[in-house]
Computed example of a mutant assay.
Amino acid sequence: MNSTEKLQLIFSKHLPPNSIPYCLDLWVKNGFNFTVTPSRKTKLGDFRWRRDSSRQTITINGTLNPYQFLITYIHEVAHLHTYLHCGIETAPHGKEWKSTFQKLMIPLLKPEIFPKDILIPLSRHMRNPKASSARDLFLTKELSKYDLNNNSSQEVFLADLRPGSVFEVQGRKFRKKETRRTRVLCEEIPSGKKFLISQLTKIKPVED
């Protein structure tokens, strides 16, 4: 099995079927090392540039659902294209990257690739893409419906909880206070310590 066949096999396990030829073509045109990794809490994927190497590396979490995997793949390939055409000194998520990301995503923004409930917020997101799609509340909510481990009906997004409500996350109990942009001020129970927690954190509501 050659490299193209190996990558095609990987894609068949992680990508929406109709997106595979396009994603494979991006790899053929600008070859790079590609690795599927275990889940990482701080990132969905990454692009690694090495000045001493002619072949760069892209990694993506293997636990992502197919639609999140596809968005992340194009996100990282956009980094590769940006650095190849604009230079390594270009801002990681500056206007050059945004323009490249938008251009690469356009052929995929259709119902043959994404279901309608994702396509609508994704199209809106791509008008001015953020450094991470995980920072887009509405897009993240729709994508989460297709998560591979979406088997906990008790978990909700912190953003959907009313102020004053009590919740648990990672074995600790908090009370939700006020929302500050993308994070929520929360008070730990019983210590009373204050923490800022992402409004996109999955939490379990509990009785006060």
Rank of each mutant, 00 (worst) to 15 (best):
K6V: 01
I10V: 12
I10D: 09
F11N: 05
H14E: 05
P16F: 11
K29F: 05
P38G: 08
R40H: 14
G45V: 05
G45W: 01
W49G: 00
R51A: 10
R55A: 04
R55H: 02
I58D: 01
I60D: 00
G62D: 05
L64N: 14
I74D: 02
V77L: 04
H85W: 07
C86R: 10
K95E: 10
E96T: 02
T100K: 12
L108H: 00
L109Q: 03
P111A: 10
I113E: 09
K116D: 15
I120C: 04
H125R: 00
N128L: 07
S132A: 15
A134W: 00
T140I: 02
D147M: 05
D147Y: 06
N149R: 08
N150K: 10
S153P: 13
L158E: 08
A159I: 01
D160E: 14
D160W: 09
R162C: 06
R162P: 07
P163E: 14
G164S: 09
V166K: 09
V166Y: 12
V169R: 13
K173H: 12
F174H: 11
F174Y: 15
R175W: 01
K177Y: 06
E178V: 13
R183E: 03
V184W: 02
C186V: 11
E188S: 11
P190S: 02
S191M: 10
F195S: 10
I197S: 11
P205V: 09
P205Q: 11
V206Q: 12
